[in-house]
């Protein structure tokens, strides 16, 4: 019986130490991940805060070696984001509505959902190529419209996903109650389901805005960027990420410092949007 007793005593010790090592590694992984992410946000603050001043929001991007701000980039970002969201949101909501309401049990719906999930994570630079061939080439040049179109294509899958998810959460009793007083299907959807799913759909749109406002790759050869102030939708337009891209890879210290400041602004905006979206969701679920 001796060896068994020895094993019984030895095994727990080995299992214990193996467990300790395993747990230690998990703690280390978390520490490593959080450190990396803190380092990134830290250096963003460290390098970006110094350049924050009123001038950043009131002056346009400077030529190499002189002072200036990011006004044209910020305005361009806003315009193209609004364009993209204004075009993408209705299409996304309508498609999501079809999947959750009219087509809930149709065979096409899982297919659309599958394709949509793939579009959701498709490389954004491919979307840039697509819009280049479809909009930029026929129009004969880079334009803010093309940039907005590229962003709209990114918005659509995000909005579809949340709209469908949120409409599926609406209790069927609400639909039945509306139907019982004689409301037709389209009225039920618009006046009952949309109202019930409102907070969730708004969250989806906010998340789409957050996603789109940091996108660079699809704008590289659609909106192209512009060092001057321009509001014309048919000519190249600046955007914050495009300007950051151009300035960060330049050799001029003034441009690099503006790139850090721009990076700080865009990150803060994106994080703020995601936090607002989250608060909306948690408010809704706690109600």
């Amino acid at each position: 019986m001796e060896p068994v007793a020895v094993r019984a005593r030895a095994l727990p010790a080995r299992r214990k130490s193996a467990n300790a090592v395993f747990q230690g590694l998990c703690y280390a992984a978390t520490a490593l991940g959080l450190t990396a992410l803190c380092l990134i946000l830290g250096s963003l603050l460290y390098n970006g805060v110094g350049g924050l001043s009123l001038r950043v929001f009131t002056e346009i991007t400077p030529g190499p070696g002189s002072q200036g701000g990011l006004l044209n980039a910020i305005v361009g970002s806003l315009i193209m984001t609004v364009l993209g969201v204004a075009v993408g949101t209705p299409i996304g909501i309508l498609a999501g509505t079809f999947m959750a309401e009219y087509g809930r049990y149709k065979r096409i719906t899982p297919v659309v959902r599958f394709i949509n999930d793939i579009l959701l994570s498709a490389p954004s630079i491919i979307i840039g190529l697509f819009v280049y061939e479809l909009v930029v080439v026929p129009m004969g040049g880079f334009s803010a419209l093309a940039g907005g179109a590229a962003l709209a294509i990114i918005v659509i899958p995000v909005v579809i996903r949340t709209t469908e998810d949120m409409l599926l959460l609406v209790p069927n009793q609400l639909r039945e109650a509306a139907a019982s007083i004689g409301a037709p299907r389209s009225v039920i959807i618009r006046s009952v389901c949309y109202k019930a799913a409102q907070a969730g759909i708004v969250t989806g749109v906010l998340l789409a805005v957050a996603r789109v406002s940091g996108e660079t790759a699809p704008l590289l050869f659609t909106a192209l960027g512009n060092l001057n102030f321009s509001l014309r939708l048919t000519s190249p337009m600046a955007s914050l990420p495009l300007t950051i891209n151009q300035f960060a890879s330049s050799a001029y210290p003034e441009w690099q410092s503006l790139a850090w400041t721009g990076a700080l602004i865009i990150t803060a905006a994106v994080l703020l949007l995601s936090i607002v979206a989250r608060v909306l969701v948690s408010k809704r679920s706690s109600r």
């Binding site: 209705p90 299409i91 996304g92 309508l94 498609a95 509505t97 079809f98 999947m99 309401e101 009219y102 087509g103 096409i108 719906t109 297919v111 659309v112 394709i115 949509n116 793939i118 579009l119 498709a122 491919i126 979307i127 190529l129 697509f130 061939e133 479809l134 294509i153 659509i156 899958p157 579809i160 037709p184 299907r185 389209s186 009225v187 959807i189 618009r190």
Partner: peptide
């Protein structure tokens, strides 16, 4: 009702054509 249904359905099919459009272009 039919109009709204058509609208939502075309939006859903638009997503399918989007992927095909990517490949084609």
């Amino acid at each position: 009702d039919a109009f709204f249904r058509l609208l939502t359905r075309s939006a859903a099919y638009f997503v399918l054509t989007l992927l095909g459009g990517f490949l084609l272009t």
